[in-house]
Computed example of a mutant assay.
Amino acid sequence: MRVLVVQNYDNTGLGQVGAALREAGAEIDLRNAHHGDAMPQDASGHDAIVVLGGGQNALADDKYPYIPALLDLIRDFEAKDRSILGICLGSQLMARAFGGENLIGTSPEFGWRRISLTEKAQADPVLGALPKDFSSFQWHDDTFTLPEGAVHLAANEATQNQAFRVGRAAYGFQFHFEADQPLVRYWNASFPDLLRERQPGWLDRHEEEAAAHGAEADAAGLSIARAWVATI
């Protein structure tokens, strides 16, 4: 099992997705697209693709000129019925790739927040084993409309489109289910100035929030990660 991982921003990390891939014995082919790593021409050399998050938005082609080719690559993986996972920015790029509209700056969320599954998610192979309502970590400003034909899987009060599926196994997640407590602490250490500016008081209250929500979010996130890996 060979999985292409596209990193769009420094210090994002695979978190629980990486743990699930390692459990499955996957070979991880990491490409730092934002630093100019060459991208495959098509999906033929990989069994799945993971597109991670980032601080840029999904329409930032001028500063990140690899984005249009990445959209083509996402479409090729789906056309070849190979598993796709887009997280945060990755989900926004997936929405764009399949015809959704990106809505910039319209849906800010940060911290552990509640997620609710739709009725269709209860029969979904990746989400069906989860409770209908659970916590997960959020860090985003943007959202998107669902592509035509996509299956709506999750929502919350702040962001209607939290998860969707295209075809058999192309999954977009706006929420950071991969971000377990160690990864959130790593982000705190990696982006302290940004967090102090954008999320005042977060670094002081983080441990209390983690104690209240982290274990539930970690359990849900690992379940999602393992179930997605099983689609490959």
Rank of each mutant, 00 (worst) to 15 (best):
L4K: 02
V5H: 03
V6Q: 05
Q7M: 08
Q7N: 13
Q7Y: 01
Y9R: 07
Q16T: 14
A19H: 15
L21T: 13
L21S: 15
E23R: 03
E27C: 10
I28D: 09
A33E: 01
D37N: 00
P40W: 08
D42H: 08
D42P: 09
I49Q: 02
V51D: 03
G55F: 11
G55C: 02
A58K: 05
D62E: 13
D62A: 12
P65M: 01
P65Y: 15
P65G: 12
Y66F: 15
A69W: 03
D72W: 01
I74R: 06
I74A: 09
R75F: 02
A79E: 08
I87W: 11
I87C: 04
I87H: 03
L89Y: 02
Q92K: 07
L93S: 12
M94K: 01
R96C: 06
F98C: 07
G99K: 02
G100W: 08
I104C: 11
P108F: 15
G111D: 14
R113C: 13
R113N: 14
R114M: 12
R114Q: 10
K120N: 12
A121D: 04
A123Y: 06
P125R: 12
V126M: 04
P131L: 07
K132Y: 05
S135N: 01
H140T: 10
H140L: 09
H140Q: 11
D141V: 03
T143A: 10
T145L: 07
L153F: 08
L153A: 14
E157K: 15
T159R: 09
Q160M: 13
N161F: 14
Q162F: 11
R168Q: 11
Y171C: 00
F177M: 00
A179Q: 07
P182T: 03
R185K: 14
W187M: 06
S190I: 00
P192S: 05
P192C: 09
D193T: 14
L194I: 05
L195I: 06
R196H: 08
E197I: 12
Q199H: 14
D204C: 10
R205N: 01
E207H: 09
E208H: 13
A212N: 03
A212D: 08
G221E: 01
A225P: 10
W228P: 03
W228D: 01
A230G: 13
